[in-house]
Design a protein around this nucleic acid. Structure first.
Lengths: 212, 212
DNA sequence: ACATACCTGTGACTTTTGGCACAAGTGGTC
DNA sequence: GACCACTTGTGCCAAAAGTCACAGGTATGT
């Protein structure tokens, strides 16, 4: 499977036997935009590694949502990894954001076995946890100590695309879902930022103005 | 070191060579109440495993604090574990809550080496991450979707000691520091709960009343 | 008994966030 | 053009959380 070469590279997976095992037991699936890869409450039976595309992983509660993280090319869903080590239900949902996505699926039992057999797989596992833990920690801290206004500004600056003039292409509702709040609140805070000349608002587009 | 036997048991550490290595390179330190084990911003050079006592791990920001987790007997500080795999500064503080505490310290480089050498150590590492990740996830979700009132009630019921008539022995300030808010807010919410006959208030003590 | 430090309660007010309702704009499609 | 789904703006009000200020209680040490 040539599609896996970049993944091997990125993760430092070298052992030929491991590569063979991945190719034997893993299978690649293709998905379209908006498709749900994981639903809250579902039992997780395979580890999902995103080969191509972009996936949003979030928690939901009644009518609210909050972002946990995005998966980009060659990233692993930490939560499905976590689930592999003790079979449990998912507490999150995952949805395809890009036009299409390619996912490498690995049945759970191999995931744990390989940790013992292949150092590079083990390293990959630990590293995934470590990274995710730190990211979640940072989010937790932001949520606890920062106002929505600050979190919004941070979100915008982190997601503004420099190649398109620092624009974020999202609706207010989408942003509200990232931050765990409601549309009206986001609309109002954005309006305030616009009055302060820190952003320019358009249809589904927010341009960040860096005065510096 | 006989003090380590319960730790070995609990973590399933069997390999004699590993036990020897732990006893050779690890060292046990004793601490008193209120002592700081880790300070925010500090570089972490040893993995800390709590053999005895109780330690509070929390984040702070200006005049606020929020609980990350408690360490009890035989538990490992996940954050120091995380730090072992890529040297970085601590984003949290840890403080001894019990009268005294005993900590097993293991220099970082062994922590990573042993993962490759000893299956049970590796298992211990992954399990620690997995567990902590789930706990943090749950906290994150609570913080995002629940009101302070709900979080307070949950905190009280989780921390009420059944052996002492469901009493929580803490000041309002301490509770505020667990939940990431201020003393006055906690005082008022507690008063409201008392009026609803769900708790009884005393000096540094809150008794939960289960009407069921 | 007095000083001191900490703990609790609460009034008054502000800021932040959320919820409801409705108006108007945008962009597609049939 | 008519219809539809989605998007944005905003007035109005309510709930949740935070801030400031101060009074009085409790516990402890000298």
């Amino acid at each position: 499977m040539k599609a896996l070469e970049p993944f091997y590279q990125q993760m430092g997976i070298r052992e030929p036997a491991l590569r063979q095992a991945i190719e034997k037991h893993g299978f690649v699936t293709a998905h379209v935009a908006q498709e749900r890869l994981i639903k809250t409450g579902e039992y997780i039976k395979v580890l999902k590694i995103l080969l191509q595309g972009r996936v949003r992983v979030f928690q939901e509660s009644e009518d609210r949502e909050i972002l946990i993280y995005y998966l980009s090319q060659m990233e692993t869903c930490t939560l499905s990894l976590s689930a592999c080590f003790g079979d449990c239900q998912s507490t999150v949902s995952a949805i395809v954001e890009s036009n299409q996505a390619q996912v490498l699926n690995i049945p759970v039992r191999y995931v744990t076995d390989w940790c013992h057999q292949y150092p590079s797989w083990n390293h990959f596992t630990i590293d995934t946890f470590r990274h995710s833990y730190q990211v979640l920690m940072e989010s937790y801290s932001m949520l606890a100590f920062k106002t929505l206004n600050e979190r919004l500004w941070e979100y915008l600056t982190n997601n503004a695309c420099p190649s398109t003039n620092n624009v974020v292409l999202m609706s207010h509702q989408q942003i509200a879902n990232e931050l765990g709040t409601t549309r009206e609140v986001v609309s109002r805070l954005l309006k305030k930022l616009e009055k302060q000349q820190r952003i320019r608002l358009g249809q589904k587009s927010i341009q960040i103005i860096y005065s510096s």
